[in-house]
C-alpha cells in the first residue's frame, strides 16, 4: 500500500478551479516532484497535502488514514515533516536550540516549566546537525546563517520527528546552483536510508530531473503527465506547456 494517496483533489477560489481532480500516490523512500508552469495549481495542491488548505472534494490518505481535514499541527504528530519556500527558523535561538525545540515538540515535552530546555536532547540534536553537515555551526545564532545553511537547518528540524513523509516547498529556491545539487543529493540520501517519502515542488529543472524518482506535471489544475525523468522529457504535452511547441 502507498504511504500517501491523493484522490481526485478539487479546489476552487471563486470561479477559478485551481486544482481540478488530481490523483496520485507516493511510496515510502520515494522522491516525487510536483512541477508545472506558474499558476498551474502546484501551491494549491501542495497546501492541500500539508493541511494549510482543505480540499473542496477528494481525500488525502496517509497510510490509509484520511488526513484531508487535519491542521498542520496534527499532521506533524502523524509523522509529516515540512520545509518552507522561505526558510522559517527560530531567530532568537542558536542552531542547536532550533533542533532541540523541534525534538522537544515532537516528544511532547512542551508543557514543562522548570528544567532548562538547553539540557534536553543535546546528543540527538547534534546527531541531526551532523547528518545535514551543520555540526560545526551548532552554537551559532540561527539569524546569521547563510541561506543554504538555513535550508539545511530546516531539514534537520523537519527530520527531528522521524517523519514518514517530508513535504518540501521549493526546497532550493534562493540558493546558489552548487548548494542546490548538494542539498537535493542530501535529501535523496536521507530518504533512501530512512525510508522517508519525499514530495517536493521545484522550479529548478536540473534539481528535478537529477533527484526525483517520479515527476508529476500540473497544468491549469490538471495532471497532464506522470513518469520518470526520461518519460517527462519526452512527453509532447509537457514540451507544449513548457516550450510552447504545438
Amino acid at each position: 500500500m502507498s504511504l500517501l494517496v491523493a484522490e481526485r483533489l478539487e479546489k476552487s477560489f471563486g470561479e477559478t478551479r485551481a486544482v481540478a481532480g488530481v490523483s496520485f500516490s507516493l511510496d515510502a523512500g520515494e522522491m516525487l516532484a510536483l512541477i508545472g508552469p506558474n499558476g498551474a495549481g502546484k501551491s494549491t495542491c501542495f497546501n492541500m497535502l500539508n493541511g494549510q488548505l482543505h480540499p473542496d472534494s477528494g481525500r488525502v490518505l496517509l497510510a490509509g488514514r484520511d488526513i484531508s481535514r487535519l491542521s498542520p499541527r496534527h499532521m506533524s504528530r502523524l509523522g509529516v515533516g515540512r520545509s518552507f519556500q522561505l526558510a522559517a527558523t527560530f531567530t532568537s535561538m542558536t542552531v542547536r536550540e532550533n533542533v532541540q525545540m523541534a525534538l522537544i515538540a515532537q516528544s511532547g515535552e512542551v508543557w514543562r516549566f522548570v528544567r532548562p530546555a538547553r539540557a534536553l536532547h543535546v546528543a540527538e540534536a547534534d546527531a541531526l546537525l551532523a547528518l545535514v553537515g551543520m555540526a560545526d555551526q551548532a552554537e551559532r545564532a540561527a539569524s546569521v546563517l547563510a541561506y543554504g545553511d538555513l535550508k539545511r537547518l530546516e531539514l534537520a528540524m523537519a527530520l527531528a520527528g522521524t517523519p514518514r513523509l517530508l513535504l518540501m516547498d521549493e526546497p532550493t529556491a534562493g540558493m546558489a546552483p552548487v548548494d542546490r545539487t548538494a542539498l537535493m543529493a542530501l535529501v535523496r540520501r536521507i530518504a533512501r536510508a530512512r525510508g522517508v517519502a519525499v514530495l517536493f515542488t521545484e522550479h529548478d529543472m536540473d534539481a528535478v530531473f537529477s533527484t526525483a524518482d517520479r515527476i508529476l506535471v500540473l497544468d491549469q489544475g490538471h495532471l497532464i503527465a506522470e513518469g520518470d525523468a526520461a518519460a517527462i522529457r519526452a512527453d509532447p504535452r509537457v514540451r507544449a506547456v513548457y516550450l510552447g511547441e504545438a
Binding site: 500539508n50 491542521s71 498542520p72 499541527r73 506533524s76 515533516g81 515540512r82 518552507f84 522559517a88 527558523t89 527560530f90 531567530t91 532568537s92 535561538m93 536550540e97 532541540q100 525545540m101 523541534a102 522537544i104 515538540a105 515532537q106 515535552e109 512542551v110 508543557w111 514543562r112 516549566f113 522548570v114 528544567r115 532548562p116 530546555a117 534536553l120 530546516e154 528540524m157 523537519a158 527531528a160 520527528g161
Partner: peptide, 20 residues
Amino acid sequence: APFGYALRAARDAPLRAEAI
C-alpha cells in the same frame, strides 16, 4: 524551560512552530 522556548518559537516563526 521548554515552555518558554516553545513560546518564543511560536513568536519567531508561527508557521514553523505549527509544523513541528
